[in-house]
């Protein structure tokens, strides 16, 4: 921790951010604090502003007002890729990979980037021995070692979702934003992904953007409910589930609820 950051700073602190698109107030004064090791779910009906809020956190959007702090540093004006280099990493809801590359090369690329070596032109990427060792460890830990050299487009969808996580892990995040990590996975293929999520490093602050209540109940220790661009409720999963406003605005419409 350098230049002014303190130990007790939140890993991610979003302070009262708002953004408007024309007549639509997409996000309206939302705050969110994630300490290191957080397991926090962001839920809400379609159109609640979840994706916009993720854009504000990750830097693809700039808020009209409010601040975003990363480990105590103001990154409100910092771009997307620069925030990644500061430890704020995201995965994508729709699988977003390098179709022609193998999982190994993809992870190697992520490591090379993290280590500031992505502009090197002389030594082949596959001959950075320490990188290959680390990529091997990551791929082993997520169960992809057997298909490490196959083009990712050849992998099953559930495996591709795991490559998403492996790429995020290779960046050594302090804050990891997982945008519907289980979206679109056939039931039989999700077991592995859940194991991987459970095995994520304890110190990483995790923000799930989720529709899947099963996943929220299983992983989240805290929940923020967005509706109409505002925070509707906050608290433990049980507390939020019991909130009548949440049941009204969100669960009432969706039928299947937080109740197990």
């Amino acid at each position: 921790m350098s230049d002014g950051a303190r130990l007790n700073d939140y890993a991610l602190s979003v302070e009262d951010v708002s953004i408007r698109f024309g007549a639509l107030q997409a996000v309206d004064g939302v705050s969110l604090q994630l300490p290191a090791g957080a397991r926090h779910a962001l839920i809400g009906p379609n159109g609640a502003g979840k994706s916009t809020f993720v854009g504000l956190i990750t830097g693809t959007l700039r808020p009209d007002s409010g601040r975003v702090l990363l480990g105590g540093h103001d990154v409100t004006r910092t771009g997307f890729s620069a925030r990644v280099r500061r430890g704020l990493v995201r995965s994508f809801q729709v699988t977003s990979l390098f179709a022609e590359m193998s999982a190994l090369d993809s992870v190697l690329l992520a490591i090379a980037e993290r280590e500031g070596r992505s502009a090197r032109m002389l030594r082949p990427l596959g001959r950075y021995g320490a990188f290959v060792d680390e990529a091997g460890e990551i791929l082993r830990s997520v169960g992809l070692i057997g298909v490490a050299k196959r083009p990712v487009s050849d992998l099953a969808y559930g495996q591709q979702r795991v490559v998403e996580i492996a790429l995020a892990l290779a960046a050594r995040p302090r804050v990891l934003v997982l945008d519907e990590p289980a979206a679109g996975i056939p039931a039989g293929e999700s077991t592995r992904l859940f194991e991987v999520l459970e095995g994520l490093p304890a110190e990483v602050a995790l923000l799930f953007v989720e529709h899947d209540m099963h996943l929220v109940r299983r992983f989240a220790r805290a929940v923020t409910v967005l509706a109409g661009g505002k925070v509707l409720a906050e608290g433990t999963p049980a507390h939020v589930a019991a909130d009548p406003a949440v049941q009204d605005a969100y669960l009432g419409r969706r039928g299947a609820g937080l109740h197990a």
């Binding site: 997307f80 994508f92 022609e100 590359m101 090369d105 690329l109 992505s118 090197r120 032109m121 960046a171």
Partner: peptide
């Protein structure tokens, strides 16, 4: 074959994902 060339092909295939790697 070096990181630079691999990164360029990564950008060609998926620039958003490359930015997400930092």
């Amino acid at each position: 074959a070096a990181p630079f060339g691999t990164a360029l092909r990564g950008i060609r295939q998926n620039p958003v994902r490359m930015a997400a790697l930092g």
